[in-house]
Design a protein around this nucleic acid. Structure first.
Length: 819
RNA sequence: GCCGGAGUGGCGGAACUGGCAGACGCGCACGACUCAAAAUCGUGUACCCUCGGGUAUGUGGGUUCAAUUCCCACCUUCGGCACCA
């Protein structure tokens, strides 16, 4: 039986490469505008061209490929493109290590990966490939930058920014991770530097980014992003100081305003110098210097004891007229709110610790319901709960549910404050001091100042001849001539911006470039946009929740505001796959030695088996550990499917009841597989097909194979297999004498009548415990079911002569007898 | 500390709307085929048991005729945020 020369032997290596070649030649997976068919844009996150596809890429791409194929069979005109996010640091690091040009390294990797992609049997339309480091691509990345600049959505400012000392570049706030504040790429803890950098006004769209009402995005992503954006509602309140300067604070608890017993400024706050008195100046300066020397990690450690210094100055509480001391302390951050807070020690734990440490007054102004009357002197911790206002002037007695609003109305009436909303989200820092990225198309002119490059001059090409050793300065700055240019406005000698753009800029709009990757009149062809956009389903890793996924939505919202895009959302549905772990249930890594290499698996089992196993082994959105014995099960299934179609069947008399039951199982399975494909529940698709196969294998030995039903069975089985194992399905389809290609066939339609059960198993319980199962016809009435159940011997025995007190009948399912 | 997810056999995992817990697969055991092995096929496989049954979905409560599913508290674990006013 296992003779490789036998035409009936399953030989994936042979048939997979054969069909891949044919599909390629025939352009089977080309997607072109077709107004007669509904479109479906299925998008999977594009990879960085590291040079090797790992099993994680397969997991991210193959189940979505199967679903895209299924959608196509359903009659949709499906666009399922692929490309490369090919700018970025690893190319430079490889160049430094091996002395290869980053461009050479990148494009060699892309070539290799295209070949690997082909071996997957995916339906990518390669004519639509987009490569972000191609000048015809980054020309438009630069063009988008200019649109942002011209519409005041890009700006340059000097500020303390996160710097990765290993990558030698600044990072966006989103790229700094964890409690040690490390670089997302290389895990090195970042440091702060004061630098002039380019930013995008992402914060301007914070509220819009929080609105998910028009899109169906995975809940966990929405939660992560909502936390990240960090909206809080409150009020801005201005306090006058004795020196004449005003200090504005943001508070979420305006109801506690009468409890202010001090104020605190961030050490970096420019007001510090003005408010500090001569006697305190030295102490203040010392504290500020010490705070600036500390790293963020030291400074922001929450378990650290509070420190601070009195400025000598006083502020006036605008609601009570009371004089309160102004302090500086490093627990107040310059980067959030106004860089100053009002100290309400009775109702804020941080303020409480500060007040206790420095002997400041603690006054209770909120009395939560159900607690004994509070007294500041006795408190051991702050009481943040809401409650009735006390000791609060004419607002005393205001109940909890009105207190906040009433306080805001009050400060508005006094003209010292207003309602306000604050976000944790920061503007997106996009400058990078590295070579392998799109140059920022700006020019610094001694006469005109900061000037955007002419759109006609795009792309501003990256020079090939650079020294890319990392110095902390952009390699473009060190190039002898590249930065020299003339001012686009006045023609004077000027210099270019030498930083390049964050690669997240490139990936914020690649889904638009796929529409028309060689279009020269704009970033995308509007005709293609009108037909294909928005993306119907977007899939990828969840690690991008607070980076790429926020940025790409920002792009759409900003470009919509400018009038370039008609939509405010790029992707309607978002789903995220889990991670394939090593066999030891740990994250795969070279150092652990638990890495699974897909190329080897394809050589050993064929792509179809790898695809099937990736769909089967875990819930796709959850992921799980790889199993090298587990994949044997999928390989076995493939071989059994093969033999179902190709091995001779035994004869015999077909039993009509069996034929009916086979058709029922077939159409029930089809209904389940269809539903599961819609819901991306890939693992149960495979198990349903395995279950059906098991039944078919038995039927085949019972004479069913020589009936018309068997033809229907094989046809539908092959069609259901087509999205999962495209090569084998095509081969079997051909051997059945069906017209090429199976991938152009329509998804089979469920025969509801055939799928309907005629008998059901009635579950009979006594006091909730299973006592009997009785087969009864579908449609048996509740009364009949009740009688049948009560007549059961097992029930009578379990009742032990007791009378049923209650009988619950769930139609078509179950009878529960309570005695 | 705050926010969110997850805890089901030896293992990966099923269970659509509160209604048969453990589908499907791996592993294991036994059997068939074989000189033998591999492959393949078949049978069995949660736990306990006095063979009547009994107990089981992280733990403890609750709601219900009925809970893996709903509610409350807790434990473990994973992820995110964290002196964000």
């Amino acid at each position: 039986m296992a003779d490789p020369n036998d035409a009936n032997f399953y030989n994936p290596a042979d048939l997979e490469s054969r069909w891949q070649k044919k599909w390629d030649e025939d352009g089977l997976y080309h997607s072109d505008i077709d107004p007669k068919r509904p479109k479906y844009y299925a998008l999977t996150m594009l990879p960085y061209p590291s040079g090797d596809l790992h099993i994680g890429h397969w997991y991210a791409m193959m189940p979505p490929d199967a679903r895209a194929r299924y959608k196509r069979m359903q009659g949709f005109n499906v666009l399922f493109p692929m490309g490369f996010d090919s700018f970025g640091l690893p190319a430079e690091n490889a160049a430094i290590k091996r002395n290869i040009h980053p461009k050479t390294w990148t494009y060699a990797n892309i070539d290799k990966m295209r070949g690997q992609f082909r071996s997957m049997g995916a339906m990518f339309d390669w004519r639509r490939e987009a490569v972000s480091s191609d000048p015809e691509y980054y020309r438009w990345t630069q063009w988008f930058f200019l649109q942002f600049f011209k519409n005041n959505l890009a700006y340059r400012k000097m500020s303390p920014v996160d710097w990765c000392p290993n990558c030698n570049t600044t990072l966006a706030r989103e790229q700094v991770w964890g409690d040690d504040r490390h670089c997302e790429r290389c895990n090195t803890p970042v440091i702060k530097k004061n630098l002039e950098q380019w930013f995008f006004r992402t914060t301007q769209f914070a509220d819009e980014l929080l609105d998910y009402s028009k899109i169906d995005w995975a809940e966990r992503v929405r939660v992560l992003e909502t936390n990240w954006i960090g909206r809080s509602e409150g009020a801005l309140v201005r306090f006058k100081t004795e020196c004449g300067e005003e200090v504005e604070v943001f508070t979420t608890r305006p109801d506690t305003l009468w409890g202010v017993s001090f104020m605190v400024l961030a050490p970096e706050n420019p007001l510090v110098n003005k408010i500090a008195t001569a006697e305190q100046k030295q102490a203040v300066t010392e504290y500020v210097n010490q705070a600036l020397r500390q790293s963020d990690i030291q400074r922001e450690a929450t378990d650290k004891e509070k420190t601070g210094v009195f400025t000598g100055g006083y502020a006036i509480n605008p609601v009570s007229g009371e004089k309160v001391p102004v302090w500086i302390a490093d627990y107040v951050l310059m980067t959030y709110g106004t860089g100053a807070v009002m100290g309400v020690p009775a109702h804020d734990q941080r303020d409480f610790e500060f007040a206790r440490k420095f002997g400041l007054n603690i006054r209770v102004v909120i009395q939560p319901e159900g607690l004994d009357a509070l007294d500041g002197k006795d408190l051991t911790a702050a009481v943040p709960a809401y409650g009735v206002m006390v000791n609060s002037g004419n607002l005393t007695g205001t109940p909890a549910d009105e207190a906040k609003k009433a306080a805001i109305v009050f400060v508005e009436k006094l003209g010292v404050g207003k309602a306000s909303t604050n976000f944790r989200l920061r503007d997106w820092l996009i400058s990078r001091q590295r070579y392998w990225g799109a140059p920022i198309p700006m020019v610094y002119c001694p006469i005109c100042g900061t000037v955007p490059e002419d759109e006609a001059n795009l792309p501003i090409l990256l020079p090939d001849d650079v020294e890319w050793k990392p110095t902390g300065e952009s390699p473009l700055k060190l190039h002898p001539t590249w930065k020299d240019t003339t001012c686009p406005q006045c023609g004077a000698a000027a210099v270019r911006e030498t930083d390049t753009m964050d690669t997240f800029m490139c990936s914020s709009w690649y889904h638009l470039r796929y529409l028309s990757p060689h279009y020269a009149e704009g970033p995308f062809d509007p005709k293609e946009y009108a037909y294909w956009m928005p993306v119907d389903i977007y899939t990828g890793g969840i690690e991008h929740a607070n980076m790429h996924l926020i940025y790409t939505r920002f792009f759409h919202k900003a470009l919509h505001a400018i009038g370039i895009l008609p939509d405010t959302e790029p992707m309607i549905v978002l789903r995220n796959q889990g991670m394939v772990l090593g066999e030891d249930s740990e994250k795969m890594s070279k150092s652990r030695g638990n890495v699974v290499a897909p190329d080897k698996l394809v050589a050993q089992y064929g792509a179809d088996t790898v695809r099937a196993y990736l769909m089967f082994f875990a819930r796709w959105e959850q992921g799980g550990p790889w199993s090298s014995t587990g994949i044997e099960g999928s390989a076995r299934w493939m071989r059994r499917v093969w033999s179902l179609f190709t091995d001779p069947a035994s004869g015999g008399k077909p039993d009509p009841e069996m034929l009916q039951s086979i058709r029922r199982k077939l159409h029930q399975t089809l209904a389940g597989v269809t539903r599961d494909f819609e819901n991306l529940e890939f693992n149960t698709i495979i198990s349903a097909l395995m279950e059906l196969l098991n039944e078919l294998m038995r039927a085949k030995q019972a004479g069913v194979a020589y009936t018309p039903v068997w033809k229907e069975v094989l046809e539908i089985y092959a069609l259901m297999l087509a999205p999962i194992a495209p090569h084998m399905a095509e081969e079997l389809w051909q051997r059945m004498g069906k017209p090429y290609s199976i991938h152009q066939q329509h998804w089979p339609v469920v025969d509801q009548a055939a799928a309907a059960d005629d008998m059901i198993t009635l579950i009979v319980q006594v006091n909730g415990k299973l006592r009997d199962r009785i087969s009864i016809p579908v449609g048996t009435g509740d009364e009949d079911a009740r009688h049948i159940a009560l007549a059961s011997d097992a029930v009578q025995k379990a009742l032990e002569g007791k009378q049923p007190r209650q009988v619950i009948v769930v139609p078509g399912r179950l009878v529960n007898i309570v005695a």
